[in-house]
């Protein structure tokens, strides 16, 4: 899916419309079609010439990853919604969804809300186990023009409440010098999930945390 520069009006943040030959479908977990502006699993109905042909030496893994969860459709692994104009919006990877008290929240949505605050440079949201809510929300934030203190922590919670709703207010906000990223520039979500759930030990407990050493250790595995 992509805008075409001479034809399709852009909405910032939307991948707009499907390219020729691509037939997208957005489905609930029970495989029923979602309604307008409802998020769900993005699938592709028909084969197209540029479709991947397999996983080298592992036909089972190819079927398992892309063809099993939704019968007769290619599972992209992305969540998406379609708006009232038929525009598609990618809402993050399927496994980036946080399930808080039965509500499915997209990490991208929470991150977008955070970076819309003038003091936030970058943000990453991950789920962490929560006995009551199923999953809690932990966010990692790099700040600009602001010290990492309680006042900004409270302000950011208020800001997310305003932008998305009380549901999406992070349970924990951690400030970091920089977000750990793979060499291709993707945020290392598994590492952040492990840090948030306490599975990965972080010795540094200062107000501004540095995860660069952990990131380096795990960069191959998460790329």
């Amino acid at each position: 899916m992509s805008p075409l520069p001479g034809a399709i009006p852009c909405k910032p943040g939307s991948c707009t419309k499907p390219l020729p030959g691509i037939v997208p479908r957005v489905l609930h977990a029970d495989l029923s079609d979602v309604g307008t502006n409802e998020g769900g699993m993005l699938c592709i109905e028909k084969p197209w010439p540029g479709m991947l042909r397999g996983v080298w030496g592992d036909d089972e893994r190819f079927k398992e990853t892309y063809w099993k969860k939704v019968p007769h459709m290619y599972l992209t692994g992305d969540n998406a919604r379609q708006d009232e104009d038929g525009y598609y919006w990618i809402m993050g990877r399927i496994d980036d969804v946080i399930n808080v008290s039965g509500h499915r929240l997209s990490t991208i949505e929470i991150e977008s809300a955070l970076v819309s605050h003038p003091s936030v440079a970058e943000a990453a949201a991950v789920g962490r186990p929560d006995e009551i809510k199923g999953q809690g929300i932990a966010v990692f934030v790099t700040l600009k023009n602001h010290a990492p203190d309680e006042s900004i922590r409270e302000e950011l919670k208020k800001h997310v409440r305003k932008e998305i709703g009380a549901l999406a207010v992070p349970d924990e906000i951690r400030f970091t010098t920089m977000l750990p990223k793979t060499r291709s520039g993707k945020i290392m979500r598994r590492l952040l999930r492990d840090i948030a759930s306490g599975k990965e030990n972080v010795q540094d407990t200062s107000t501004l945390e540095d995860f660069s050493v952990l990131a380096k250790l795990r960069s191959d595995e998460e790329s």
Partner: peptide
């Protein structure tokens, strides 16, 4: 400032010249 793109409502059509 980068706006919250999940709530973006602006639309940017291609220029007619393009």
């Amino acid at each position: 400032q980068i706006a919250n793109v999940m709530n973006e409502t602006r639309v940017f059509p291609p220029s007619s010249e393009f």
